[in-house]
């Protein structure tokens, strides 16, 4: 089954995302910030990366920039979890190499639908 790396500094968000995705049969790993996520991404290859934008230590934008520098993650879909108000953030995410975004707040169904679309 496809492997997904979920990055968010909010524990409740991480729990919700992980619970939803695992329930749908995906293999999920969590990270609390970009820097931790980058470390995990280097140890194994994920099929999809979900990342929050606003995080301490290393934010989502910087994380995607760094992730895309890794050869293995050049084409891997990376979705940003972002709030609707942050239109400029969306663009900053795209510029950094994000594939797309999921607008917060989202419910588990919306999350799964988007991920199914990307992973097929």
């Amino acid at each position: 089954m496809a492997t997904i790396l979920a990055v968010d500094d909010s524990a409740s968000m991480r729990q919700m995302v992980t619970f939803t995705l695992k329930g749908a049969g995906y293999d999920v790993e969590e990270a609390c910030d970009g820097s931790e996520a980058l470390g995990i991404a280097k140890t194994k290859k994920f099929d999809l990366v979900l990342s929050d934008v606003n995080m301490p230590v290393m934010d989502g934008i910087q994380f995607v920039t760094e992730l895309r520098k890794l050869g293995e993650y050049k084409f891997v879909p990376v979705l940003m979890l972002t709030t609707e108000s942050a239109g400029d953030k969306k663009m900053a995410g795209k510029k950094a190499g994000a594939t797309g975004w999921i607008v917060k707040p989202f419910n588990p169904e919306q999350l799964l639908n988007t991920i199914k679309k990307v992973l097929g």
Partner: peptide
């Protein structure tokens, strides 16, 4: 860090259905 905290509360509140909180936090966050 103040912003991040407000932002997380807003995001979580929206996701978990506490619209009163997310609506209020939205203006704070803005």
């Amino acid at each position: 860090s103040i912003f991040r905290a407000a932002h997380s509360i807003k995001g979580g509140a929206g996701t978990f259905g506490f619209m009163q909180v997310s609506g209020f936090t939205h203006v704070v966050e803005t």
